[in-house]
């Protein structure tokens, strides 16, 4: 489904630091239906990657859609993706437009 978003882009964040280092707001049943990045912490993996930006809306995490997921569930999906030892990276499908 994400591939049909004309303005979406896939960003790979390598787990290069002990934290991911992003803050997100939004989720299903809120004013911001998909999680949006509101902060990127210096020194975190996301900051080191250099491609994730404040304002990016996260559509998918490692191919899992966040559409329809409430805030805590979306946050859990991202946290699990960072925690798992199976991959040394997380693939975020993001868009700059709401």
């Amino acid at each position: 489904p994400g591939l049909l978003e004309p303005t979406s882009c896939l960003i790979r964040v390598v787990k290069s630091a002990p934290t991911l280092g992003i803050a997100i707001e939004g989720g299903a049943n809120t004013r911001q239906p998909l999680p949006r990045i509101v902060t990127i912490q210096r020194g975190g993996s996301a900051h080191n990657c250099g491609k994730l930006k404040v304002g990016h809306v996260i559509l998918e995490v490692n191919g899992t859609t966040l559409r329809g997921k409430e805030h805590r569930e979306a946050a859990r999906v991202i946290a699990e993706a960072f925690k798992t030892k199976e991959k040394d990276h997380i693939d975020f499908l993001v868009t700059e437009f709401n």
Binding site: T19, L20, G21, I22, A23, I24, E25, G26, G27, N29, T30, R31, Q32, V38, T39, Q41, H71, R72, A75, I78, A79, F82
Partner: peptide, 15 residues
């Protein structure tokens, strides 16, 4: 659109 306005703001989570 009116429905949107009634939706609550989201909490923020640091990950």
């Amino acid at each position: 659109r009116e429905k949107r306005l009634t939706l609550p703001p989201s909490e923020i989570t640091l990950l």
